[in-house]
Amino acid sequence: MYEIRPIITLDAPTKLPNCMYKLKNIHADLDNVLEEKSLPPGTKKVGTFKQVEQFLKNIENREMAALEDRQEKLLSQLEELKKIMESIKSNLNKSSNTPNSCNKTAKISSAAKVNNIPDIVINVNPRYPPYFLLFLQRLLKNEISLNITCHLHSSVSEISGKSEAFISNLEKFPTNGVPSMNIRLIWKNIGPNAELSVSRFPVQGEANILRFLARTLDAYLGYEKNPNVAKIDYLLDLSYKLSNTNSKSSRSGILQCLSKHVLPNFKWLGGQNKITIADIAVYDSLVNFANKNEISGDLNKWFNNCEGYIKS
């Protein structure tokens, strides 16, 4: 056939402004037509010609072209799928052949472990601030920093001064470079017990929240390997009971029980040299549910230890 003159000439260079950010070239898929700009004029013609051809083809047989396009796409998707399957296959073979790699995954650093912790949402009644968080911040300061964000739920219009002081205390704690864990604290109109929700059913009560955290952060808070595990559990139960009693008489009964666990020569409850989650839970319940004048004797000494701990 004889050659016709190109219908469109694309030799005028387009000057693009540089005051905006660059966008991906949306026409680049079509034969890289626009990229050919820098090529010598001979080859450019082909580009234009092809473009025109494409255009005519589209007009004549648009549906067919669409179908072809779709087929091409499907085929390329299939190809991709195949590649993915193959890579999975080879990965599987590798892992089954070399059991050593399993050990490697088991030895994930503590940082990676922390990354697996789900985001935690704790609902609290603004009248009963979750003091246990102040302990956790200090207890975990070298391993995990608690990234706590506070929200006010629509069921409460304002929070008490007590809780505001608590929040400023929380925020005062410095964060360092350790991996962080997200905790969202929602002040909400609920019962006196805090609720932690990870799945559909909430964990109720500070003691049980601490138990949950002890299991998820086993390396730092775990108490189940402690020889006094039963005692710690008992103390946790007592603290939960304390948060659910209304009468003064039953409260004093629990307080008596608690003071029995303050042993001489030991700084923390249940004959421990190191602070445990039992101390944290009991302190939390005492501050929120008992009067200061009800705490006396040995228990008071221990209580002051706790106060000192969260002020450190």
Partner: peptide, 16 residues
């Protein structure tokens, strides 16, 4: 059911 919200509002990343 009553409308509920948080103050400050909850901001989630697309990936979350």
């Amino acid at each position: 059911e009553p409308f509920t919200f948080l103050d400050p509002p909850l901001i989630l990343h697309y990936n979350e």
